[in-house]
């Protein structure tokens, strides 16, 4: 035996309290999930603080990167929602960078020997977090939709220019599709993060198991090792892509709220 120990693929998702906190009877302990939310958010704030500390006409390296992010999300919001989407830009931007950093930081390897509660953690691999973000988006869509269009918001469910006999069926479909939006939004992000980390852990687990078997079997550990490397690269892509997808879908749904009466 070589003393290797492989954790199960679900262990990485366990929530572990670091500091016990209670608000009345509600448990709001600082956990590993909260720690990585704080690390991610802190990193974003430090980055943008440093990038905009001396906003220069000729941007430095940090400012260039910040401006690339800004223009990227700004273009996305303008192209999807139009000029009226300007007021949602800070929200979409926050959503995009928060999810992006949350996804990415969880992919970094844990410092060897760190206690379990300090292992890298992906807050977006928990359904409750992605569901909360999705519900926030849908709530903004509904509230702003009614505020902007009044009852005209219901036109969203009844596209114009359709034969009357099709209306009941179509309204039913549209309502179901609208109600499924927060779920699909939440589950898409959660499932991508969850599945990615499970696969990553499975490959890594194979390596550890084969190594601990000893002898010639150890050589077979090479294959899952390269598998883990490849999946890590893929997961970086997925992490960025899913943050982008969440932002794009948020923009599309916000566009419905802004232009519901135009349907």
């Amino acid at each position: 035996m070589y003393g290797f120990r492989a954790a199960g693929p679900m262990e990485q998702f366990e929530i572990l309290p670091i500091v016990d906190l209670h608000l009345g009877s509600i448990n709001i302990s600082l956990t590993n999930s909260a720690l990585w939310m704080l690390i991610g958010t802190g990193a974003i704030i430090v980055f943008f603080f440093a990038a905009t500390r001396r906003a220069a006409l000729i941007p430095g390296r940090l400012q260039s990167v910040a401006e690339v992010f800004y223009e990227f999300v700004s273009d996305l919001v303008r192209d999807t929602i139009g000029p009226e989407g300007r007021k949602f830009f800070p929200y979409v931007f926050t959503l995009f960078v928060w999810i992006l950093v949350s996804n990415l930081f969880g992919l970094f390897p844990t410092f060897p020997g760190a206690p379990h509660a300090l292992h890298t953690f992906t807050p977006t691999s928990h359904l409750i977090v992605t569901l909360a973000l999705a519900m926030l988006t849908i709530s903004i869509v509904i509230v702003y939709g009614f505020y902007k269009n009044g009852l005209g918001f219901f036109k969203l469910f009844a596209p114009s220019g359709l034969p009357l006999w099709l209306m009941p069926l179509l309204i039913l479909i549209e309502v179901i599709s609208f109600l499924s939006r927060p779920l699909s939004l939440a589950i898409r992000l959660f499932a991508n993060m969850f599945a990615g980390h499970v696969i990553l852990k499975l490959f890594a687990g194979f390596v550890v198991s084969l190594l601990s078997a000893g002898g010639a079997v150890m050589l077979f550990g090479i294959a899952p090792f390269f598998g883990a490397v490849a999946v890590t690269a893929l997961e970086f892509l997925v992490a960025a892509l899913q943050a982008y997808v969440f932002a794009v879908l948020t923009c599309i749904y916000l566009n419905d709220a802004v232009h519901a009466a135009d349907h």
Binding site: N27, I28, S33, A34, L38, F49, A51, P90, Y91, P123
Partner: peptide, 29 residues
């Protein structure tokens, strides 16, 4: 509850910082 609590704290803080400080600064530049 703990996850939701810290999500609100971090996301809210990030939104406040970005919308009032960072984004206007970048937009200004």
């Amino acid at each position: 509850p703990s996850q939701l609590f810290w999500l609100v704290i971090t996301f809210g803080a990030l939104y406040a910082f970005l919308s009032t400080k960072a984004l206007p600064a970048i937009a200004g530049a």
